[in-house]
Every structure is written in structure tokens, then in C-alpha cells.
Amino acid sequence: MLTIQSHSYHRSQYIHSANAVSGYTYGQINSVKEYFGLRAKNEELAKENARLKELLFNKKDTILEGNATPPGFLSDFKVIQAKVIKNSYSKQENYLTLDRGNLKGIKGDMGVISDRGVIGIIDKTTKHFATVISILHTNNPMNGKIKNSNHFGSLTWDGKSTGYVQLIDVPKLATLKKGDTIVTGGQSFIFPENIPVGKIDKIFIDKSTNKFVINVRLFNDMTNLGYVYIIENKKKREKEILEAATEKDADKR
């Protein structure tokens, strides 16, 4: 200490070394702060993605003139961001748990997707949580179609691989090939049409129905899920009431 205090060179070297140590320490502290700040940043990005998806799902095919936006133009679909806090994928009937519930407007029969594609359908909710019937569920059929040909079928899971689901009941008239994209169909009001599901991997013929059975490789890695998006179709109830009334009238005839 006497040497450092009495010689300017030694004093400058000490100060330089001390600054280097403190600078390194502050750098490490800042890195830790940035690491723990990633969660907040990811949350903000997920919220922004939800907003953009809501705009996308409500986009019409027609182009509006000028800046005019008709009433209800962006009212069909609502998108709510959530995070997966529990995920099963090794059972025959798999479920996920989300960190959002009915306080955020989440209800049963809402569709759940990620940035890559379909995840499942909301099953039950509490104030703060919701469970999701996974696409990896042997008793949870969904409507799907071949993107290039618009032929429809039912998306099911045979309970074997977490990376694949099956599109069944596709007519043999359908034009399809390996690598074609499978998306959600327009027959269900749970999901908007054309949400990605996966790509055709293998094609079989079901001898009992004489229809195609398609093995679909999922875009999602169902074993590694983070933020997801819940889709509310605000016109779903209207459609259900109309179809129920139509079926009731048909039964009377």
C-alpha cells in the first residue's frame, strides 16, 4: 500500500487493475440481469405475436379501398397469449396446462396453436389456469385438409409417435403427394382455416373404407412447448345454434 501511495506509476496500475475487476464484475451482474430479463422480454414478444395473429386471422380476402374499415371487420377472432406450464406426451390421452384461465376470457372448446401450428383444444378452465386436450390424444379428432387440393379428412392420433398424427377418411379422388402441407379445414369453427398442422410423410389405403390414410409429420415438437395462443371464434355459438335448429327441423320432416 505504501508503494502504491508513493509512486504514481504503481498507483495508476492499481487503479487500472481495480477498474478492470470492477468492470468485469459489473459486466457479469449486467449479464445476470439481462438473463432474468429475458422472461419479461419473451412475454412481451408473445403478446405482440398474439396481436399480430389476431390481425392475420381476421384478414379478409378482399382489399379495402382507402382507410375505410367496416364495423366488425376485426371482430371474428380473438387471440390470447399463454404459456405451457405442464405438458404430457407419453400417454394415449395427453393434456397440457396453461397459465391463463377464465379471468382472461378463456373457455372450453377454444383452439390452441403455437407459432408452428396446431396444439390442441381447451378442455377445462379455472380462474387462473386451463387444460388443453393435446393433438396427441387418441380421442380428439379435428378437421383437417390437404392445402393444395382442399380435400378434407379427420385428424386423429394412433397413439404411437409424438411426431406424427394421421389424416383419415380422405377420398381417393384427392390429389396428394409426400411433402404436401396439411392445414386446418373450414368445417370447424374452433380453428381459423389454414392453420398449419404438418407435412405428408406416408400415404396408405384403408381397405375397409377404400379411402386414404395419411401419416402427417407435425410442424410442432410436442415435447418442447413454450408460449402458445388461444383462439376464440366469436361467431362459434351463432353457428352452433343455427346448425342445431337446422338438424331439429330436419328430424321433424
Rank of each mutant, 00 (worst) to 15 (best):
M1E: 05
M1W: 06
L2W: 05
I4K: 11
S6D: 09
H7M: 03
S8C: 02
Y9R: 12
H10C: 04
H10W: 14
Q13L: 15
Q13R: 10
A18M: 11
A20Q: 13
Y24L: 14
Y26A: 13
Y26V: 13
G27L: 08
Q28W: 07
Q28G: 09
I29Q: 15
G37L: 07
L38C: 10
L38W: 09
A40F: 08
A40N: 14
E43A: 07
E43D: 09
E43G: 05
L45Y: 06
A46N: 06
K47I: 09
E48N: 13
E48D: 10
N49I: 04
A50Q: 06
R51Y: 06
K53C: 01
E54P: 01
L55T: 02
F57T: 02
K60N: 08
K60H: 09
D61S: 11
T62C: 03
G66T: 07
A68L: 10
A68G: 09
T69D: 07
P71N: 05
F73Q: 09
S75I: 03
S75N: 14
F77Y: 15
Q81M: 05
V84A: 04
I85V: 14
K86A: 12
N87P: 10
Y89C: 08
K91Q: 15
E93P: 01
N94G: 02
N94D: 04
N94R: 08
L96F: 06
L96N: 04
L98R: 02
L98E: 06
D99Q: 05
N102V: 03
L103Y: 09
K104R: 14
I106F: 09
D109M: 08
S114A: 07
D115V: 08
V118S: 00
V118F: 00
I119S: 03
G120P: 00
I122G: 00
K124F: 09
K124Q: 15
K124D: 14
T126K: 14
K127Y: 10
K127T: 11
F129E: 12
F129N: 12
A130T: 03
A130Q: 11
I133T: 14
S134V: 06
N140R: 07
G144K: 01
K145V: 00
I146Q: 00
K147Q: 12
N148I: 07
F152H: 14
F152T: 14
F152Q: 10
G153P: 06
W157G: 02
G159C: 06
S161G: 05
G163M: 11
G163P: 04
K172T: 15
A174P: 08
L176V: 14
K177V: 08
K177I: 04
G185Y: 00
G186L: 00
G186P: 00
Q187A: 03
I190T: 12
P192D: 03
I200H: 03
K202M: 12
I203A: 07
D206T: 03
K207G: 06
K207W: 02
V213A: 14
R217L: 06
L218Y: 10
F219E: 15
D221L: 10
T223Y: 11
V228R: 00
N233I: 01
K234R: 15
K235T: 15
R237P: 01
R237Y: 04
E238G: 12
E238N: 13
E238H: 08
E240A: 04
E247L: 11
K248W: 11
D251E: 15
